[in-house]
Design a protein around this nucleic acid. Structure first.
Length: 307
DNA sequence: GAACCGTGGCT
DNA sequence: TAGCCAAGGTT
């Protein structure tokens, strides 16, 4: 940390002159005392374990990921082990985590890692980003958490914490903005390992304390410095968030059809699939999309199976 | 940028 | 109850 003279131009240009000093150290201390003991955070966790966790954690709560992640690593301890099996086995092992295309992409990523990276999970952001199913967040997260690289990690937790503590709004913008990236880069500690710890610490604070609804501000290590709290915790006044309907949608229909395949030991008949959903046009549409996605395979004998 | 892609727990 | 939310990515 550096001490800036009060007359420094850089100080007057910043809305919160010492945001880094006020936030980083307290949050690191808080994390040291409050971090959950998660398998993919342990010292002996492999980059593959971290990668698998990041795929599974996309839009899925930790508690549901834990048992599937453990079984997955037991069965496929390396990318090559997964790549050696059919993608259908990955879809089956994915269970009910949701968004089963992630299982397909994880299998594809394992194949690419095996064939193009000698079986080792890449440590470079760009190489990770080029893998199937890996976008900006996951590439940064794996580089930081598996390899200790210095990366700006912006997930929904980090964005919400920064929106509140620094920007003073209850929620971040709908999509990541340049301002958020700049802020993330500003706050990131210079030292690479410290930067990685900072990133996971902010994520943890967002997951456990600075939650989307009913944040536990009484337990927050930076409540005194929080711009949102200082402003009186004004209610969110941005555009309404789109309601995510589910019942009766194609997504639910796809889920029902895939569950039939997942729960069957081998292949299934068309009649078995038909029994899972009444609306015929919707069922046809859903099955066609599952086939197009590669989540279901049609057999020559008219039956269906996982790929 | 918007739409789409699962699932289950909570309030 | 029904909306809301959970470590996003792809098209």
């Amino acid at each position: 940390m550096t001490t800036r003279p009060t007359s420094s131009p850089s100080r007057s240009e910043r809305p919160r002159p010492s945001a880094a000093d006020e936030l980083v150290a307290p949050i690191l201390r808080w994390y040291d005392e409050n971090a959950r003991d998660l398998p993919w955070r342990r010292p002996d966790a492999t980059p593959w374990s971290v990668l698998v966790s990041e795929f599974m954690l996309q839009q899925t709560p930790v508690v549901r990921v834990l048992p599937v992640h453990e079984a997955w690593l037991d069965r496929w301890p390396t990318p090559a082990a997964l790549a050696a099996e059919s993608s259908g086995e990955a879809v089956r092992a994915w269970g009910r985590l949701g968004y089963p295309r992630r299982a397909l992409r994880l299998h594809a990523a394992a194949t690419a890692i095996t064939e193009e990276h000698g079986g080792e999970v890449p440590s470079e952001y760009d190489a990770l980003l080029a893998l199937p199913g890996i976008g900006d967040y996951t590439a940064a997260a794996v580089a930081a958490f598996a390899y200790g690289r210095r990366q700006v990690v912006l997930d929904t937790n980090v964005r919400r914490v920064l929106a509140r503590t620094v920007t003073g709004t209850e929620f971040p913008p709908r999509s990541v903005t340049r301002a958020e990236r700049d802020l993330g880069a500003d706050l990131l500690p210079e030292d690479a390992p410290a930067a990685a710890t900072w990133s996971v610490a902010v994520m943890e604070l967002g997951a456990l304390v600075c939650t989307a609804d009913r944040p536990r501000c009484d337990a927050c290590p930076v409540v005194a410095a929080c711009a949102w709290q200082r402003a009186g915790a004004p209610a969110y006044d941005g555009p309404p968030r789109p309601v995510q309907t589910y019942a009766g949608t194609d997504r639910q229909c796809r889920g029902r059809l895939l569950a039939v395949l997942r729960d069957a030991p081998g292949d299934v008949t068309r009649a078995q699939l038909d029994a899972a959903w009444d609306d015929v046009p919707q069922r046809e549409r859903a099955l066609a999309s599952l086939l197009a996605d590669g989540l279901v395979a049609a057999r020559a004998d008219g039956r269906y199976q996982l790929p």
